[in-house]
Design a protein around this nucleic acid. Structure first.
Lengths: 342, 342
DNA sequence: CTGAAAGCGCTTACAG
DNA sequence: CTGAAAGCGCTTACAG
């Protein structure tokens, strides 16, 4: 132990490749090579370096490496509010998938005070290689996100797309998902379905709504109501209650996402309307909560894992100008839609 | 526009302080000073630098800065599975609080294949200034976590503590929370309460159980059962069903956390037992889901914001050897415990 | 207040 | 395969 990694007083002394090279009796370059896969170094030299490194508790400094290689290995994950459990799940998947590829996830937030653009700018100083942005409202996004791409950092929108903008994006095929939801409700015999929307300024809301109404129209059915406000539980409850108070009695509901659908279910319970005997309910996302015995929500599940993998692939080889990459939603049949599994 | 930040072919050219200095007609040091708060630089020079920087789209390279200042400004957040919504909330709070302090959160995961120690080692290469570890089982932690602290990086355990180990930790006062839960159930008239535990190898489980049974004992009451397994919904359901099948009919339940308590509520609904008329239920955490109309779970809420702030404070000035920093839980009175609010 | 220069800890041509 | 040296983009004494 010539030079322990810590000393009693003061902060720990960093062990550098130079320290290791001295102990191993080789050059500093050799130490670097021992830690670079594929570098030309003899097995014997590598062994001695690794042994010395082990003794000293040495680990290459990724910061210094980044500086010279011009690759930080850092990908920014920019999240807003995490009220929808779908996003933490996505977040955790991304972090893991990134680690598998030897990359790191830098977690950043945006909110009303700090918009995505500002956050992205700040992230740039860490020389991020790419950024994945979790849902924002459509209107907030375009001008800002465009700029950053110019900065040379590929940005990908997860679970949203920006119509008319050239940003990379990966999302569920919400239009087809909306159609599927309509199909399921029609099959259940619904003739007066309602759509309880989420944030109307989002592509998720818009696409699901469009798919839903179009499929309905093909069957000669018009939704009795399509109020929209937010992807929130309280809104699902409130919208359902208001509809009922106004005398509207839909025979089925499509909640813009599971959180909203769960609000609908709870409101229906309050109103004493039986699900699925009197009214059917379908959601979108397939979050864990939807499987609870109290809900057993039938829903359109998003293929999260595939979406995450695809997002990372898209970022590795960004083709500017390509449209959103869409993944098909899958019907998760549970107990809130009348009739039997299609 | 002498030198645009991007060029049509190839990757974007990075703009450095040297580029800015040339445009502004000052030295490279001056550019650095213009971006260093408190550095000695004339207002006029700073203005010219900032203007040139603006023109070129320059932003200091945080990686290069880290290398020379020996401060990365990066704090690692190490998370396991995110099935409990309490953690995403904590995560998001940490990320925001860190940003407020001009720091960045590096998100890392640990799981069965990659334990905390391994993850922490990997994080070290990014010269992290501190690490916050989200729940792990007790038995997995000690040997590993100890080592890392030796490496000079303060590590803090969030929502857990390791009895007998000198790690920093911030948690809810689970012992007192357990006592409070017992008190609430006793006040509701319970004489045969059950505790449905979480992962028995965690301090959260152990402390809550201990507080609960001790307070009960003081009132001459013994819990009818205290099975433990996991902090999961399915386990809450299963444990309750098993108890019932075995002929045990507790008049009240304390779920080790809200997820478990929600499982208990759903199982009770299945069994046709009315809450709170026939049986009371109390949980721990106060996650969003507990407020749903379908549950309205009475619970012990954790003061998340205060805990996050305290954790960051503890990390800024780590006092090795100090015990866990405990925060009092707060009774959130809803509809699952008999009687009226104490 | 300012600039020239050293140096943070690495990687990577280059020459041997 | 190996080592000496340049250089990544900054900050910070040092001298003026």
């Amino acid at each position: 132990m010539t030079r322990p990694p810590t000393n009693a007083t003061g902060p720990a002394q960093r062990v550098t490749s130079l320290d290791v090279s001295r102990v191993a009796g080789v050059s500093q370059s050799a130490v670097s090579r021992a830690f670079t896969p594929g570098a030309s170094i003899s097995p014997e030299t590598r062994r001695r370096v690794l042994e010395a490194a082990q003794r000293l508790g040495y680990q290459p400094n990724a910061i210094a490496r980044s500086l010279v290689t011009q690759r930080s290995g850092i990908v920014a994950l920019i999240v807003g509010e995490l009220h929808n459990p779908f996003y933490p799940q996505a977040l955790s998947q991304f972090a893991q998938a990134l680690e598998m590829r030897g990359k790191r996830a830098l977690l950043l937030t945006h909110d009303a005070r700090r918009d995505v653009q500002e956050t992205l700018e700040a992230a740039r100083s860490y020389q991020i290689e790419a950024a994945i942005v979790f849902p924002t409202r459509l209107n907030a996004a375009p001008p800002s996100l465009g700029n950053v791409e110019e900065g040379g950092i590929p940005v990908l929108l997860f679970n949203r797309h920006l119509p008319g903008h050239q940003l990379l994006s990966v999302a569920c095929d919400n239009y087809r998902g909306g159609r599927l939801a309509a199909q399921v409700l029609l099959d259940a015999g619904s003739r007066q379905p309602a759509f309880i929307g989420g944030d109307p300024d989002t592509s998720t809301h818009q696409d699901r709504l469009r798919g839903f109404t179009e499929r309905l129209a093909e069957a000669g059915v018009r939704p009795v109501a399509t109020p929209a406000r937010a992807f929130q539980y309280d809104w699902g409850v409130q919208a359902t209650l208001h509809l009922d108070a106004a005398g509207d009695r839909p025979d089925a509901f499509f909640g813009a996402n599971d959180i909203v659908a769960i609000g609908i279910l709870d409101a229906l319970r309050t109103l004493g309307r039986r699900v699925p005997q009197e009214v059917s309910v379908i959601g979108f996302d397939n979050i864990e909560e939807s499987a609870r015995l109290a809900y057993r929500l039938t829903t359109i599940g998003q293929p999260l894992e595939a979406m995450v993998e695809d997002a990372l692939r898209a970022l590795e080889d960004p083709q500017p100008g390509e449209g959103p990459r869409l993944h098909p939603g899958e019907l998760i049949w549970r107990d809130t839609v009348a009739g039997s599994r299609p």
